Computed example of a mutant assay.
Amino acid sequence: MYQHILVPLDGSANSNQALQEAIELSRVFGAKLTLLTVVNNSNWIAASGSIATDITKDYRERAERLLAQGRAITDKAGIQTTSVIKTGIPKNVIVDYCQSEDIDLIVIGKSGADAINRLLIGSTTAYVVRHATVRVLVVNAQEDPEA
């Protein structure tokens, strides 16, 4: 049923839970996984020169760490993955990526790490659900029974 699953990662508990769900789906369907992290440039205020370079470098390094963590989880699970870093507005990049690649399912966390943007301009997940041309599975982080 599913051959290629996209998992957007932002470091939130919800995206980590989405990755776990995608791993299980990958096992069931024999699907390949693509992990996507977006360097969000929507908050960059007209930075130029070395400041812009520093911001880009910091965001890129964070994206690389997130993907490395995701790959470590999928490697441990025995699931082969592809990792992709894109720059842009996350909700647009996710939808556009699915249209340009052979993705047939997005497994995404209910809410991500960027709560301020969610309040100001709306949820990335809600946008993806409304605009994606493929199926979308929205995953909640499991509550910690110890909390």
Rank of each mutant, 00 (worst) to 15 (best):
residue 46 A to M: 04
residue 31 A to S: 13
residue 52 A to D: 08
residue 59 Y to W: 11
residue 45 I to R: 15
residue 38 V to R: 02
residue 15 S to Q: 03
residue 43 N to C: 11
residue 15 S to C: 04
residue 28 V to P: 00
residue 53 T to K: 15
residue 36 L to A: 06
residue 59 Y to G: 07
residue 19 L to P: 03
residue 26 S to G: 15
residue 13 A to I: 09
residue 41 N to K: 12
residue 18 A to C: 03
residue 41 N to H: 07
residue 17 Q to S: 07
residue 25 L to C: 09
residue 16 N to D: 13
residue 42 S to K: 11
residue 56 T to D: 12
residue 36 L to P: 01
residue 40 N to E: 07
residue 46 A to S: 06
residue 50 S to I: 15
residue 22 A to L: 00
residue 67 L to W: 11
residue 16 N to G: 08
residue 42 S to H: 11
residue 14 N to D: 12
residue 68 A to T: 13
residue 20 Q to L: 14
residue 35 L to A: 04
residue 68 A to H: 09
residue 13 A to Y: 01
residue 23 I to N: 00
residue 60 R to K: 13
residue 57 K to G: 12
residue 47 A to L: 15
residue 61 E to M: 13
residue 27 R to I: 03
residue 28 V to E: 09
residue 54 D to R: 10
residue 22 A to Q: 01
residue 29 F to L: 06
residue 28 V to G: 02
residue 17 Q to I: 05
residue 33 L to W: 00
residue 57 K to P: 09
residue 56 T to Q: 11
residue 21 E to T: 13
residue 43 N to I: 10
residue 60 R to T: 15
residue 53 T to P: 10
residue 31 A to N: 03
residue 61 E to I: 08
residue 26 S to P: 12
residue 54 D to K: 08
residue 44 W to D: 11
residue 36 L to Q: 06
residue 31 A to W: 00
residue 22 A to T: 01
residue 17 Q to T: 06
residue 66 L to S: 00
residue 68 A to P: 01
residue 40 N to S: 11
residue 67 L to Y: 07
residue 52 A to F: 07
residue 53 T to F: 08
residue 61 E to G: 06
residue 27 R to H: 07
residue 57 K to Y: 12
residue 34 T to L: 06
residue 15 S to D: 02
residue 67 L to E: 00
residue 29 F to Y: 10
residue 35 L to Y: 04
residue 29 F to R: 02
residue 29 F to W: 06
residue 66 L to V: 09
residue 47 A to H: 14
residue 49 G to N: 12
residue 62 R to P: 01
residue 60 R to G: 12
residue 19 L to V: 05
residue 36 L to W: 05
residue 47 A to Q: 15
residue 65 R to V: 06
residue 59 Y to M: 12
residue 33 L to A: 02
residue 58 D to L: 09
residue 67 L to K: 05
residue 45 I to N: 13
residue 22 A to K: 03
residue 63 A to I: 05
residue 22 A to D: 02
residue 18 A to N: 03
residue 22 A to V: 00
residue 39 V to T: 12
residue 37 T to K: 06
residue 33 L to P: 01
residue 60 R to I: 11
residue 26 S to K: 00
residue 63 A to V: 06
residue 34 T to Q: 06
residue 61 E to V: 06
residue 43 N to T: 08
residue 47 A to D: 15
residue 29 F to M: 03
residue 62 R to H: 10
residue 28 V to W: 02
residue 40 N to F: 10
residue 67 L to P: 00
residue 45 I to T: 14
residue 38 V to L: 13
residue 14 N to S: 14
residue 47 A to W: 15
residue 28 V to S: 03
residue 31 A to D: 01
residue 43 N to W: 11
residue 47 A to K: 15
residue 33 L to H: 00
residue 40 N to I: 08
residue 47 A to I: 15
residue 40 N to G: 11
residue 35 L to R: 04
residue 26 S to H: 03
residue 39 V to S: 08
residue 27 R to L: 06
residue 42 S to T: 14
residue 19 L to A: 02
residue 16 N to P: 02
residue 21 E to F: 09
residue 13 A to F: 04
residue 34 T to Y: 07
residue 27 R to C: 03
residue 17 Q to P: 03
residue 49 G to I: 11
residue 45 I to L: 15
residue 57 K to M: 13
residue 47 A to Y: 14
residue 22 A to W: 00
residue 64 E to T: 05
residue 28 V to T: 12
residue 22 A to P: 02
residue 53 T to W: 08
residue 54 D to E: 15
residue 41 N to T: 14
residue 30 G to F: 04
residue 17 Q to W: 03
residue 25 L to S: 00
residue 25 L to P: 01
